[in-house]
Design a protein around this nucleic acid. Structure first.
Lengths: 344, 344
DNA sequence: TCCCCTACAGAAAACGTTATCTCAAAATGC
DNA sequence: GCATTTTGAGATAACGTTTTCTGTAGGGGA
């Protein structure tokens, strides 16, 4: 490995002079040239660890997401990376696999690596580790979820409202019985979506049997299993709201496996929208979250905080967008047979 | 920030003693205790930059993928991370956005960060930067694609064979005219898939008009546009093979937009398989790549090379799996109207 | 001509660690 | 009981940088 010391030797100058040349500080032109040539010929690669130790050089940022195979998060991450890369930050990413203990470990690793800021989709709505970071004024931005009892920069959508809006949409289409397949209630997003669902049901005067309300873990498998459970009810709702992209895939798969037709036999509406949602059977009506904007805002929030850490934390609530396709009956009232047999 | 120097002061011992305690080396129990307590009370966070500068501590690995919003890559990445995390490596990830110049820049950044190994899905089949790394015996593993003129650890599937197999499947179903929507031919995967397609067509005695062969960039948009172009042909093939997951989404969207029915009007088979492929309209017949195995093997290949860099580079060719669903006619011969009108 | 200021290169210190070296004290062998 | 080995803690150097300090040469003003 070549160091500025080697360069200095080859160029016949002192070490600090090399440093000055490489940092574009004022140095005699002839020396500058010699140093540049030496650096070139030795394939010099600057050592960021050394720079970071000195407290200079490109900052390192960290991203910890609960599920890096969930396209929703990777979209956010991609735009976050775009947002911060204009400033030449390096980005350390990791996957907490929705495990709080792994998350804590990863935070520790990132701190040891010397990140100057973090963006996270945390696994729990409270974490002493994160609380500590905040108390020590460590720059951190939370996406998708809100933390409980913590003042911290946050970028999310209004999950309550979005969920209520979805139910309202079902109501407008004539649905009067609706089920809910939700995420882990200890996450604010899951909780808000559930509360919004209840609110929507109430406002629209719809009915929801308690057996139609099921909570999973935001993963596809639980979407599948919970749908199985739901479909085993004697009476079925005419429509269900599924709380995220992964679960709705499981849910759809189960519904198709059972040979039920959407929306004829059951309607479905979900959170999160992707290009392939259009080509599902049927095209899926969904609440699209602005992943691009979430990522970009998170990046700018974090970069702002890196330069000025005195501002009070902000919570940005972005607009979600109901994308109406064909999985809820295309505006027609569809009541399936089973539901008609329902007593109340 | 607290350093071992602070701890030493508080515990009333020397700096090296603190280091020894924290590295579990033999130290007087009473001192050990004092050091541990001091470290605890000062919220000590080890500094990996300093360790790395000294040449010790957990190694850092780098991952550079051409598209981090492509689920195929994130699946690989996830399993790669699992594979290496058993050894407590840190992982620096980045997205080259399929841009060679960005890729080169990212490699540079990672080298500066001091990664001890790289896993990459490169943007081109040749790169002087990568060539240099290999010549300098830098540990690197390539996934999904093969590099030209380079001896380097590689994990991929047999794209040629898989593609031929797909065409053969179409032939078995009675298709005799087939189109191809491929990726950028400068990538080995895209090239192999194309060659395999041609081979398959020839072997099965099928027909492929030259207007039915279109090349894009593996992105959804080009899948959409190329399908538009294909569908504008006077005569249509009865089936098309689409070369990756992103493009097939665009392709499906376009086909649905045109109101064509799959497989009645046109059959479609693609590379890459995801949970949501089951719920597409219709369920998509696809060549599933073993993303989990690719990631895991890449991890073990890289870790092996980290400990022993003398072994000759290996190329692992993993098995792909044809998943037959309903987008190719479920075993029935389907010839659409338009095709029937074709002259030869 | 002398003095002071400026410009700029080199020397030395520092960032937070760990490894090597030194040395004293304790433990062991005779 | 003395010599020798072992033990283990502290001092020092080193990793690759940058920053501060030091010193020297050259230029300008009196």
């Amino acid at each position: 490995m070549t160091t500025i010391r080697n360069i200095a030797k080859l160029a016949g100058v002192s070490v600090p002079t090399v440093s000055r040349v490489l940092n574009d500080q004022r140095v005699d032109p002839v020396m500058t040239l010699k140093v540049r040539q030496a650096a070139q010929s030795l394939d010099y690669v600057p050592n960021r660890s050394a720079k970071r130790l000195r407290g200079v050089g490109n900052p390192l940022l960290g991203a910890i997401f609960s599920d890096l195979s969930n396209q929703f998060f990777t979209e956010i991450l991609k735009h976050f990376e775009w947002g911060v890369s204009v400033q030449k930050h390096s980005l350390l990413m990791s996957n907490s696999d929705s495990k709080p203990e792994k998350e804590e470990e990863l935070i520790q690793v990132m701190l040891e690596e010397g990140v100057s800021g973090l963006v996270m989709a945390p696994t729990l709505e409270y974490s002493t580790k994160i609380q500590e970071l905040i108390e020590n004024d460590f720059p951190i931005v939370i996406v998708d979820r809100r933390m409980r009892e913590m003042e911290v920069d946050t970028v999310t959508i209004n999950n309550f409202e979005a969920s209520a809006k979805a139910v309202c949409h079902l109501g407008n289409l004539g649905h009067s019985e609706v089920g809910y397949i939700g995420g882990p209630i200890h996450l604010s997003s899951a909780n808000d979506r559930y509360l919004g669902f209840k609110e929507g049901v109430m406002k629209a005067g719809m009915y929801c049997d308690e057996n139609w309300i099921l909570f999973g873990d935001y993963k596809m498998e639980s979407g599948y299993c919970l749908t199985e459970k739901l479909l085993s009810c004697k009476d079925l709702p005419s429509a269900i709201l599924v709380a995220n992209n992964e679960m709705v895939v499981g849910s759809l798969n189960k519904i198709h496996e059972e040979g039920l037709r959407i929306p004829h036999d059951i309607s479905i509406i979900s959170f999160d929208d992707f290009p392939w949602s259009i080509s599902l059977n049927p095209p899926l009506t969904a609440i699209a979250q602005p992943t691009q904007e979430i990522g970009a805002k998170a990046a700018s929030l974090l970069m702002d905080r890196l330069v000025d850490n005195t501002k009070p934390p902000q919570t940005l609530i972005l607009e979600s967008n109901l994308v109406v396709r064909e999985s809820c009956g295309q505006g027609l009232v569809k009541i399936n047979q089973k539901t008609k047999r329902r007593k109340i």
